[in-house]
């Protein structure tokens, strides 16, 4: 049995596998002491799986905090882990992976051997990431899932001109001040992110299936918004938030 731990900037996830079958998964906020959290959720996962620590042949950590976890045997980056898992979960076929996490948005091209051939990640700023949506959700007095739900009942999505968190925030505040419906603002925000992701996608081969993972895949309406803008069909992988941890476990 093997464990994969994905220590992300917002959430830490743990998956235990037997072969390639998931037997336990746990999740928690990363918080200020991510290593401690990682240990806790590993313990919790072991308990859920009904196994002992000593029964683990391998622990692989990934994510932003991959190097701080001292119990690991190996680290892989979230790019390789997402690629590995997505390839396996899409029936070992080439694919284009979209991974929207707390701090990064990535698009990864995986070839027919399951190897990464190219990837793109947002740079330093939070534009286009889960963090951006979190900040905007706060302005709309909800969370990212609430933001997604609001967007679903938009009648006329507004156009948000910037994915820079600072500019977008003042844009949203001013829209609210002008009595714009929150639903339309939420849809505008999703579209802004989706447009950025669609641009990233355009740098890769157009003829492979697109799969979606990371916490961002759980945001209602984001997938549809990307589909609409990119003109491509997107398949959300099962338990998207755990895909990277699963990828680490099977690495």
């Amino acid at each position: 049995m093997k464990a994969g731990i994905d220590i992300g900037s917002v959430m830490t996830k743990c998956v235990i596998v037997e072969g390639n079958r998931v037997i336990a998964k746990t999740i928690s906020r990363s918080g200020p002491m991510p290593e401690k959290i990682a240990e806790n959720i590993l313990q919790q996962a072991l308990k859920n799986a009904g196994i002992e620590f000593s029964q683990l042949e391998k622990i692989v950590s990934t994510g932003y905090g991959r190097h701080i976890f001292s119990l690991n045997h190996k680290t892989v980056t979230e790019v390789s882990a997402a690629a590995k898992a997505s390839f396996y979960l899409s029936g070992e076929k080439p694919c284009l992976v979209i991974d929207v996490g707390g701090q990064d948005t990535k698009t990864i091209e995986v070839d027919r051997r399951g190897e990464v051939v190219d990837f793109l990640m947002n740079d330093k700023c939070a534009a286009g990431t889960g963090r951006f949506l979190e900040m905007m959700a706060t302005v709309l007095e909800t969370d990212i899932y609430g933001l997604g739900k609001l967007a679903l009942s938009a009648t006329k999505p507004v156009v948000i001109n910037s994915t820079c968190s600072v500019f977008a925030e003042s844009e949203v505040v001013s829209l609210l001040a002008h009595n714009e419906r929150k639903e339309n603002i939420a849809a505008g925000l999703l579209n802004a992110i989706a447009a950025r992701i669609a641009t990233m996608m355009s740098h890769f081969h157009k003829d492979v299936p697109v799969v979606f993972c990371g916490g961002g895949a759980n945001i209602p309406g984001l997938k549809e918004s990307i589909e609409k803008i990119s003109g491509r069909q997107i398949h959300i992988l099962e338990n998207p938030q755990f895909v990277v941890a699963f990828g680490a476990a099977i690495s």
Binding site: Y64, T77, E78, V79, S80, Q103, D104, V116, F119, M121, D123, K124
Partner: peptide
């Protein structure tokens, strides 16, 4: 973040 990208 740069480290993640270059390690990947």
């Amino acid at each position: 973040q740069l480290k993640t990208r270059l390690e990947a």
